[in-house]
Simulated assay, not measured.
Amino acid sequence: MTSSQPKVQLSDDEWRKKLNPQEFDVLRRAGTERPFTGEYTDTKTAGVYQCRACGAELFRSTEKFESHCGWPSFFDPADSDAVILRPDHSMGAIRTEVLCANCHSHLGHVFEGEGYPTPTDQRYCINSISLRLVPASS
């Protein structure tokens, strides 16, 4: 369910100034990066994953797991209000899109019931380009 208005609201021109063309395509136009090409697909660095568009905390490394699907996978967002889920009927399939609750940027999709050994049986399949990892302090 998408809330009515994001907290961060910018025009397309303002987003284009803030994001590079690839970031804009994924975050603002619901594009997808190619599998196994994202910078966070295989990272094991401890830290917090923020929205690349607005800096909101979305996921933590403690909820990241190896799904071998080609994109970073998480079994739960950092906070239940960090993301918004909405139906996505594009590409001839019914999927659930994941958006940043703060700026409504596209992050990826969430899938359920795939049998991964996680506490939620969910896989938040997120584009690396939608995220920025802030490593934990030593």
Rank of each mutant, 00 (worst) to 15 (best):
S11A: 12
T32D: 09
C100A: 05
S4C: 10
S4E: 15
P135I: 08
S128G: 04
A30Q: 12
F59Y: 14
L10E: 01
D88K: 01
G92H: 07
R95K: 05
R95C: 09
I129A: 09
P21C: 14
P87Q: 12
R16Y: 00
P72Y: 04
E97A: 13
K44F: 00
G47D: 01
E14W: 06
S80A: 07
H68F: 15
E66Y: 13
L133H: 03
R52F: 05
Q50S: 08
L27K: 00
S4K: 12
Q50W: 02
H104K: 09
G115L: 06
R95T: 00
F74K: 00
D12R: 11
R29Y: 09
L133Q: 00
V83N: 01
W71C: 06
F59Q: 01
S128A: 07
A56P: 02
A93K: 13
A93H: 13
F111V: 05
S80W: 05
A136T: 08
A136F: 03
D42Y: 14
I84K: 13
D79V: 05
W71D: 01
R29E: 15
G38Q: 01
V26A: 10
K64G: 02
F24W: 12
Q122H: 10
I94H: 08
Q9F: 12
C69M: 04
L58D: 03
E97M: 07
Y124F: 14
V83I: 12
Q9P: 01
F59E: 02
